[in-house]
Design a protein around this nucleic acid. Structure first.
Lengths: 347, 347
DNA sequence: TTGAAAGCGCTAACAA
DNA sequence: TTGTTAGCGCTTTCAA
């Protein structure tokens, strides 16, 4: 592997000049710069990222830490962030936290604060306080931060507005007995949970019920893990009990698809017997039978906002004056969404 | 951020001693080691990976480079590799190549050869020769290497055997007019393609047809991109032409699910009118309607084999004597698979 | 069993 | 406009 010294020698300049030239510093003359670039190309030179990172604190790599790599929604999000970052000349590395606090800490301590210039982090089990202690001062954008205190930049999923739109949509297509799947109604009394993704979706749904003058109680809400298998069992149970709903809002598309599958097992027809709408907008919902109506989070928009916040901080850091370290206050943005009507609510 | 120097100072030892102690070197006395560990804990010390990597060439991180993060099969594979690597104390970072040669090169040059101790790489557009020039000498395990010349360790998807089993399964459930979706029959005459994933699946299918005494010609093979949307259109076309098949083997589950969706659009019933079997075994196929029969690649097994090969090379490197650099010959393993019968071939 | 010292490859202040 | 030089934090000989 050729090093900067090799390139400098080959080009007949000093290491510093070579370094400046390769990074396009304007004070190097075009002729010299060209000579250096030629030598670098000939030697197949690539910057050693460890060395650059050690010296300058910059690697040109950003990190994404998500729950699970093999779940559709986080996957699609990571892919979108990768594409967005690539458009800005940054490499993206993705890691999965596996919903394990230990893994979150390890990622935050090792990869994030070491190899990456900044990280987009989806916190699961780690608190904002712990993040603060571990993140190493590098720019950090949280996804769906549940703390009241905005210590970090954050991008939110459009939970409340999306859920509200979902309930209105079910109402608009004629549903009058609407159930919500995947949320604990008890959560309402628990303040800590109210800022979580499910808490905010619940709040949006409740607002819609209120606006529509629909009375709901705990019987309208069925708690379940956000997994297809659990949802499938809920559908079995609802069907076996004699379906009390003509419309269901599922907290995620995966839950919705599990419900559709479970209803198919019991001969309950969607949307004829019960309309179903999900949340997320994963690709899969376009090819299910029936295809799935959903509140689609605008994932490219989310990626644009998250990467944008990161770039902003990276820009700040570049100009950072140590003794005037007064960073801008953390920003909180919310991704766009759109209602997509497909077969599962076509009636 | 506390450095090794801080820890050494706090523990009252030299930097070298601290370094040895933290890595559990046996020549440091238990008392000293304990003192150092205590100091490190108190200071929340974490090794600077850039520095370690720069100095020792080891970071404890392995890389996975796959086609797309938001496709189910590569996602599930990356997740499995992450879990397997974590069990061996390694961090895993995942990158997507986006099927772009430029991105593959960038990943190989920058992240792989710099930040990672080794990489599991799924080559798309880059040739083995180019990989050789770029990978930087670090251990590299290829996924489905298409070159005849085994220059690197490699794990294969069980293409030929799996495809063979798929055709036999369709035959066993009574199909006598079997089509294969997603492969170019012309490929047979093109040697370069015969070692590709689709080439090997085609070869397996042909062997099965031959064993079963079924004559096939180009009309039994329908070429399409491995995307749900393209497959859906193929299904429309086949249905509109008056379905000539009673059984279809699709080159991937995504293609199969797209076909199922396309047939649903046209009122063709699966499996009654046509049985369908896919390949991959993605989670999604368990919840589709109808659920999808498939040749499921044993992804945990694949991950175990890939990480195992990497660990083996990493072990070799550790003991590597520079002037006796005679590495073991590249190994080629194939992942297990199993036939999963679900509704789409239940007849 | 521990310490001193060199240096991985790079960047950035400072000099020329 | 270019060169000299001092490290970033760590590991690893070599010496004690």
């Amino acid at each position: 592997m050729a090093t900067m010294t090799d390139v400098a020698k080959a080009a007949g300049v000093s290491r510093a000049t070579a370094s400046y030239a390769l990074r396009g510093d304007p004070r190097i003359s075009p002729a010299t710069a060209d000579k250096v670039r030629r030598a670098a190309a000939a030697l197949q030179y690539t910057t050693n990222l460890s060395a650059r990172s050690l010296r300058s604190g910059r690697s040109g790599v950003i990190g994404v830490a998500i729950f699970e790599l093999d779940k559709p929604y986080p996957s699609e999000m990571s892919a979108a962030v990768s594409r967005e970052a690539a458009a800005h000349g940054l490499e993206t590395i993705v890691q999965q936290t596996s919903n394990s606090k230990e893994r979150e800490i390890s990622i935050l301590q090792k990869v994030t604060s070491q190899l990456c210039d900044g990280t987009i982090f989806s916190p699961g089990n780690v608190s904002v306080e712990e993040i603060t202690a571990l993140y190493g001062g590098k720019p950090l954008v949280l996804l769906d931060d549940i703390s009241d205190d905005p210590l970090f930049d954050c991008v939110f999923t459009p939970c409340a507005d999306g859920a509200e739109a979902a309930i209105h949509h079910l109402y608009d297509v004629g549903c009058r007995n609407i159930g919500v799947i995947g949320v604990d109604y008890e959560m309402l009394v628990d303040d800590r949970e109210s800022t979580s993704v499910s808490g905010r979706r619940l709040a949006g749904a409740l607002k819609a019920f209120d606006d529509l003058g629909i009375n709901v109680d705990e019987r309208n809400f069925v708690h379940t893990a956000w997994e297809a298998e659990d949802a499938r069992e809920v559908a079995h149970r609802l069907a076996d009990e004699g379906l009390a709903f003509d419309g269901l809002f599922c907290m995620t598309d995966t839950v919705a698809l599990g419900m559709i599958r479970g209803f198919a097992d019991r001969g309950v027809r969607v949307p004829d017997d019960v309309a179903i709408i999900g949340f997320d907008g994963i690709n899969e919902g376009d090819y299910s039978v029936p295809s799935l109506s959903t509140i689609q989070t605008d994932i490219p928009d989310l990626a644009r906002k998250a990467v944008g916040l990161l770039l902003q901080r990276l820009g700040e850091n570049a100009d950072a004056v140590p003794d005037n370290a007064d960073p801008a206050a953390p920003q909180r943005l919310t991704a766009d969404f759109r209602l997509i009507q497909r077969e599962s609510t076509r009636r």
